[in-house]
Amino acid sequence: MVTVTEFQKIGVGLTGFGLFFLMFGVLLYFDSVLLAFGNVLFLTGLTFIIGLQRTAQFFFQRQKARGSTFFLGGVALVLLRWPVVGMVMESYGFMLLFRSFFPVAFGFLGSVIQIPFVNMLISKLSGSSTSMV
Rank of each mutant, 00 (worst) to 15 (best):
F101Y: 08
G107K: 04
R66Y: 15
F101M: 08
S91A: 14
L79W: 11
S68H: 10
L52C: 03
G107V: 02
F42M: 02
Q61I: 08
G38D: 00
L80Y: 10
L41C: 09
K64R: 15
F58P: 00
T69L: 14
V104R: 01
T47G: 01
L41F: 10
L72F: 08
V85I: 13
G45R: 03
A76Q: 03
N39R: 00
T55A: 14
R99Y: 15
V104Q: 01
P103G: 12
Q61G: 10
G93T: 13
G74W: 06
G73C: 08
L52R: 13
G86K: 06
F101V: 11
R66Q: 11
A56D: 09
M89H: 04
A56C: 02
R62A: 13
F37H: 08
F101H: 11
V33I: 14
G107W: 04
F48D: 08
W82V: 07
R54M: 12
N39M: 03
Q61D: 12
L72C: 03
F70R: 09
V78A: 04
E90K: 11
R81V: 15
G45M: 01
F59E: 07
L97R: 04
R99L: 09
V75D: 02
F58T: 03
Q53M: 12
L41Q: 08
G86M: 03
G51K: 10
Y92F: 15
I49Y: 06
V40W: 05
R62M: 07
L35F: 00
V104M: 02
F71T: 07
S68M: 07
A56W: 13
V104A: 01
